[in-house]
Simulated assay, not measured.
Amino acid sequence: MSIGMLVTLLRDGVFQILLMAAPVLGSALIVGLIVAVFQATTSIQEQTLTFVPKLVTILIVLALLGGWMFTSMRQYTINIFSAIGRITR
């Protein structure tokens, strides 16, 4: 196993993690920002007001993009298992 192959495996793994996390974190960030602006303008300081919309948004994003995420992870896993033969040579 060469250093280049190891770097490629690590790079692909980090990219896959970012690809899976970005839609969920991005949507939670946008909803959190909207709720924060709403709280600042209305002076409502309720703790559950920030938690519940983010939770609902994350669940919706996972429901909408779950199939794509599963397909992407499956393809990445298949690529990793097919690379095992090349790595051990």
Rank of each mutant, 00 (worst) to 15 (best):
M1A: 03
S2F: 03
G4L: 09
G4N: 13
G4W: 08
M5Q: 10
L6G: 09
V7R: 09
L9T: 06
L9C: 06
L10Q: 06
L10Y: 07
G13S: 14
G13A: 05
G13P: 03
V14H: 10
Q16I: 13
Q16L: 15
Q16F: 07
I17W: 10
I17P: 03
I17C: 12
I17G: 13
I17V: 14
L18H: 01
L18V: 13
L19V: 09
L19R: 15
M20I: 15
A21Y: 11
A21C: 13
A21D: 07
A22K: 00
A22Q: 00
P23W: 00
V24A: 13
V24N: 12
L25M: 12
G26T: 00
G26D: 00
G26Y: 00
S27T: 10
S27Y: 00
S27I: 11
L29F: 15
L29T: 14
I30L: 06
I30S: 09
V31W: 01
V31E: 01
G32Y: 02
G32Q: 02
I34Q: 07
A36R: 05
A36L: 09
V37T: 11
V37C: 10
F38P: 00
F38M: 12
F38D: 00
Q39I: 04
T41C: 07
T42F: 11
I44K: 00
Q45K: 03
E46M: 11
Q47F: 10
T48F: 11
T48K: 02
T48R: 03
T48V: 12
T50V: 13
T50L: 08
F51S: 10
F51D: 09
V52P: 00
V52S: 02
P53K: 08
K54Y: 12
L55D: 04
L55R: 03
T57I: 02
I58K: 08
I58F: 04
I60L: 15
V61H: 06
V61T: 14
V61A: 04
L62F: 04
A63H: 07
L64I: 11
L65A: 09
L65E: 15
M69E: 01
F70W: 04
F70K: 14
F70D: 06
T71I: 05
T71Q: 15
S72I: 04
M73G: 08
R74M: 10
R74E: 15
Y76C: 12
T77N: 04
T77I: 14
T77E: 04
I78V: 12
N79G: 10
N79C: 04
N79F: 09
I80V: 13
I80P: 08
F81L: 11
F81I: 14
S82W: 06
S82C: 05
A83F: 11
A83S: 08
A83T: 14
I84N: 04
I84C: 03
G85V: 03
R86D: 03
I87N: 11
T88G: 03
R89L: 10
R89Q: 13
